[in-house]
Amino acid sequence: MIWRLLHNRLPTKDNLVAHNIIPLDARFCVTGCGEPETANHLFLSCPFFAPLWTLVRSWIGIAPAVGELLQDHFA
């Protein structure tokens, strides 16, 4: 999963739109926040899912990283 995440290969809605699997108007986040569903959005800025990943990070003892891209958090 990490390889897919870092190479933008997760089946997020923006990737599904890019491969013509779903229509363009269906690209928004499943939580209804109004943002396009990208990996960066889901893991870092979504008001519903981002706090979940913060809890997981704290549970496994990883300090948060400063950065707006997922790659920054793995560096």
Results as ranks from 00 to 15, higher is better:
23 P>A: 15
50 A>L: 07
33 C>G: 04
63 A>K: 14
42 L>T: 11
2 I>F: 09
11 P>W: 13
71 Q>G: 01
25 D>G: 02
11 P>V: 13
68 E>G: 09
47 P>R: 07
74 F>L: 08
72 D>A: 08
9 R>K: 13
65 A>W: 05
51 P>Y: 14
32 G>D: 08
42 L>S: 04
20 N>C: 12
29 C>I: 04
29 C>K: 00
31 T>H: 15
63 A>T: 09
45 S>L: 04
42 L>M: 10
58 S>M: 01
37 E>R: 04
14 D>V: 13
12 T>D: 11
22 I>A: 12
69 L>F: 02
67 G>E: 04
13 K>M: 06
11 P>L: 13
34 G>D: 14
50 A>C: 07
64 P>W: 08
50 A>V: 00
66 V>I: 10
67 G>I: 01
75 A>E: 09
62 I>K: 05
35 E>Y: 12
38 T>D: 03
9 R>G: 14
59 W>H: 04
72 D>I: 02
37 E>V: 04
72 D>P: 03
54 T>V: 08
2 I>Y: 06
3 W>I: 03
22 I>G: 11
22 I>T: 06
35 E>A: 14
58 S>Q: 07
30 V>S: 09
48 F>V: 14
69 L>N: 15
45 S>T: 15
15 N>T: 10
37 E>N: 03
6 L>R: 10
14 D>H: 14
8 N>R: 15
38 T>Q: 08
45 S>H: 11
21 I>C: 13
8 N>V: 11
18 A>P: 05
26 A>K: 15
64 P>G: 04
41 H>Q: 01
63 A>E: 12
67 G>R: 07
50 A>W: 03
63 A>F: 02
28 F>N: 03
30 V>C: 07
48 F>N: 13
22 I>S: 13
72 D>S: 11
60 I>K: 11
30 V>D: 11
75 A>T: 10
60 I>C: 04
55 L>N: 15
71 Q>D: 14
27 R>E: 13
11 P>K: 15
